[in-house]
Simulated scan of single mutants.
Amino acid sequence: MGGVQVWTETAETAETAEATAGAVSGQVSRWMVHHRLARGLARVGWHTDPSDGHVLVLGWSPSGLRYRARLLQAALRGRLADYQATAESAVTCAVRLQAGASTPPQDAPHAGSQAAIVAATGAHVRTLLRWPAELAELTCIERSSQVERLQLLLGQVAGLEVKVAAACRQHVRIARALAGWVCDQPRRRHSRRRAARAGPGPAMAAGLPPARPG
């Protein structure tokens, strides 16, 4: 039938290997690892057959590719269309980072800088979206087929992934912009307080309209 076998190894101590309970635990652990790996591969569109010792990848699955297309479409209609959630997460993250950045550690004097907060907020939102990391793992994998039906499904998936990646970049851009806005607020409040302390100019104090240039 063909296919590719994927083997995994789990670390076990000598004491665990000698104990019956430890051996059972190791078998359960391997089973969980292989089935988790199989689910991850199936999410990309491969047909897999997990067992206790390995995961057999049998090729592209039409139903798996259609399922991936539905996942991508759902992401575009759901979380990736919800910019309000991203805005709230970005502002919350930036405020928390700014509050903790009042006394940055000595070994990272720039940890509380605006650039660092903006970058950390963007990374936080990118992690929440999850899709950027998943798509990045697939960039070096060639996904093609000689079967026309699979070619069409792979093309559909590729097009949807481009849209998802673009939507994720837009979310990250919004998060970074909002983080910058949060970082600017103390400076703006300070400027307003300083202007208030300076008081109105002589013309305004006398009730006169400001002079017009020229």
Rank of each mutant, 00 (worst) to 15 (best):
R96F: 08
R188F: 09
V162G: 00
A101L: 08
A85W: 07
A196I: 08
G207T: 05
A74F: 02
L128W: 12
L71I: 01
R43P: 00
Q73L: 12
R187H: 14
Q146N: 14
V164W: 02
Q27C: 05
Q84W: 08
R187N: 10
L160Q: 00
V95E: 12
T139N: 05
E9K: 15
E12F: 11
V28S: 13
A94E: 04
A81Q: 04
A69V: 13
S102A: 15
G3V: 04
P62Y: 09
G199I: 10
G214A: 09
G122C: 03
A85F: 01
E88L: 14
A175Y: 02
A38N: 06
A198K: 08
A205I: 11
S144V: 04
Q185A: 14
P50L: 06
R169V: 03
A175T: 01
P104I: 02
A85V: 02
Q73I: 03
A42G: 09
A111N: 03
R149Y: 09
R189S: 13
P132R: 09
A115P: 01
P209Q: 10
L129A: 13
Q156D: 14
P213G: 07
G199E: 11
H110V: 10
R39D: 04
R36F: 04
L80T: 05
V118E: 02
P105Q: 04
L80N: 05
S191K: 12
G100F: 08
R36W: 05
S63T: 15
Q73K: 14
P109F: 06
G26S: 13
D52I: 09
R176G: 06
M1K: 06
P105A: 07
A17P: 05
G159Y: 07
A198Y: 01
G155W: 00
C93E: 13
S61I: 02
P109S: 01
A205H: 14
A203H: 11
R39I: 00
V125M: 03
A90V: 04
G22W: 00
P50N: 05
Q27Y: 06
L208F: 14
L72N: 07
P186H: 06
L129E: 10
R149Q: 11
R197H: 13
G59P: 09
R36C: 03
A175M: 00
Q5L: 15
R194W: 10
T92M: 09
R66G: 15
H171F: 03
A17R: 15
L160K: 00
A23L: 12
E148D: 05
Q156Y: 08
S145K: 02
E18S: 13
G201H: 08
R197L: 14
W31L: 14
E148V: 09
R96A: 14
R173I: 08
A14P: 07
L153C: 02
A21R: 06
G59M: 10
Q73S: 14
V44C: 07
V55Q: 07
A167M: 04
A101P: 10
R197I: 11
E142Q: 12
P104V: 07
C93M: 11
V95K: 09
G180I: 08
D49C: 11
A11K: 10
A136H: 11
T86W: 06
L138S: 01
A94H: 07
L37H: 04
G45S: 02
C140D: 15
P200Y: 05
I174P: 00
G214Q: 11
Q151F: 01
S51D: 12
H110F: 12
V24K: 13
